[in-house]
């Protein structure tokens, strides 16, 4: 998979760097110019982040940068306006949709990878097409359906819609990861008397675990940041997820509350940051079939 070749390529680049060699076709000076330009672009993108940190800890934060302070007033304010509850709601939506997506996509990805599926090529293209489908297109019919079934304002049913938006991509990802698991392991398990579900659970999933985690993390992040679907399907104020809740600071009394907004944003981004760190570690780890199969 591209993930693996990417890792390998980076390793070779790192080797070149540790030897102190410039990549071919680059002089020392042109490298310096490139670094300067990249640095300037980096600073341009870092400025809003710097403002975010500055504003979150400044009780009188405005739209501009101020001298740094260290006050937690904004965080307390954010919690008073329900940040804790909103984040709990977000966690519920994200966790349920991650569990559902992972379970569904694992079974689908495994079947598409291993079993004879009629018109498999067409099915895969259809799944790929679905990953590009904008949610807005689906929202009106889903809303109508939810009205008909009386599923509106339910975090559970809302999380199912979030899950369904992640499933196509997760199926693709997991199918490709499972394709990488050598079949001999499953055959060895079968000969030992293991049925297909047990083999999936005890052998395939552990071996495809990096892929499963990556898929789960991407699904989680997708559900965590979802705005439109919970906004439309769940109008109960007590069930607002953080991505929707953050807007209260923008339009309350037509005045932007910069400090609490920044503090809320930081709280909101912590779980995602943690997951990104974990997932990058897993992506670097790659697969560990070593020892089981001699290649």
């Amino acid at each position: 998979m591209s993930v693996l070749t990417g890792v390998r390529r980076r390793e070779s680049a790192e080797n070149a760097a540790t030897r102190g060699e410039a990549p071919p076709g680059q002089s020392r000076r042109s490298r310096w110019v490139i670094n300067l330009i990249m640095g300037l672009i980096g600073i341009w993108f870092l400025l809003p982040l710097a403002w975010l940190l500055d504003a979150a800890f400044n009780p009188n934060a405005g739209p501009g940068l101020a001298s740094p302070q260290l006050s937690v007033t904004n965080f307390i304010g954010a919690f008073h306006t329900g940040a804790g509850r909103d984040i709990a709601n977000s966690l519920y939506l994200a966790i349920v949709s991650t569990l559902v997506t992972t379970a569904v996509s694992l079974l689908a990805g495994y079947s598409l990878s291993r079993r004879h599926v009629p018109f498999k090529g067409a099915v895969l293209v259809a799944v790929l097409f679905l990953t590009g489908l904008p949610v807005t297109m689906l929202l009106v019919p889903i809303y109508e359906m939810y009205v008909a079934f009386n599923w509106l304002n339910s975090p559970f049913w809302t999380s199912l819609v979030l899950a369904s938006t992640s499933v196509p991509f997760a199926i693709w990802l997991l199918k490709n990861f499972i394709d990488q698991v050598p079949r001999e392991f499953e055959e060895a398990a079968a000969i030992e008397g293991s049925g297909e579900l047990r083999t999936l659970w005890r052998v395939v999933i552990p071996l495809a675990l990096p892929g499963v985690l990556v898929s789960a993390i991407l699904t989680f992040i997708n559900a965590w940041g979802a705005f439109l679907i919970p906004l439309v399907l769940d109008s109960n104020p007590g069930q607002t997820p953080a991505a929707v809740g953050i807007y209260q600071f923008l339009d309350a009394n037509a005045q932007v509350q910069y400090g609490p907004l920044a503090a809320y944003s930081i709280l909101f981004s912590i779980p995602v940051l943690v997951l990104y760190l974990i997932s990058s570690r897993w992506l670097q780890g790659g697969f560990a079939f070593a020892g089981g199969i001699k290649g």
Partner: peptide, 20 residues
Amino acid sequence: MPPKDRNLAMVFQNYALFPH
């Protein structure tokens, strides 16, 4: 009959030990 019910043992060319 599926492999799991045949009560056979197999040693694979590349061993196929479960790496995890």
